[in-house]
């Protein structure tokens, strides 16, 4: 299956789902005009991805500004991932925050407070 790549814009993040290398990466800012247009296609791709049995997926998130509608879509995606994990797939999230920005770290923890799959919330390494 071909990888799913959506390049970043000023208002939307880079989204990269690799079927071959088993990772999902979302990087940048997310405040699109219509969050459904950005994230619903990804949800459909994830459905395809997890249609194969015992899949594993390493997820890496590096986001700064997220609009409320994007937050809503991200919580939907996280709920979906939890369902896939419950069904036996292996899922792991690494979520980066800006070093020193404790409020951002707290926000990411809020997103993941109900999940049971493994995750790490770690400071972004310096360039």
């Amino acid at each position: 299956m071909e990888n799913y790549i959506i390049p970043p814009t000023k208002y939307t993040p880079l989204i990269e789902l690799s079927f071959k290398d088993n990772f999902l990466r979302i990087t940048g800012d997310s405040y699109p005009e219509n969050a459904m247009d950005v994230y619903q296609p990804l949800i459909l791709q994830l459905e395809k991805y997890f249609s194969a049995p015992e899949q594993k997926l390493q997820i890496e998130l590096n986001l700064d500004f997220i609009s409320t509608s994007s937050k809503k879509m991200l919580t939907d995606i996280i709920t979906l991932l939890q369902n896939y994990y419950n069904a036996g797939h292996k899922i792991n999230i690494t979520w980066y925050y800006t070093d020193g920005d404790i409020e951002q770290k707290d926000q990411w923890e809020m997103f993941l407070e109900d999940v049971t799959f493994p995750y790490n919330i770690i400071p972004l390494p310096e360039d």
Partner: peptide
């Protein structure tokens, strides 16, 4: 309720930040 509660808390956290 869970969805609304979470989005409200996330929004509050964003405003504070």
């Amino acid at each position: 309720l869970k969805q609304t509660s979470k989005l409200t808390r996330l929004s509050d956290a964003d405003e504070k930040r």
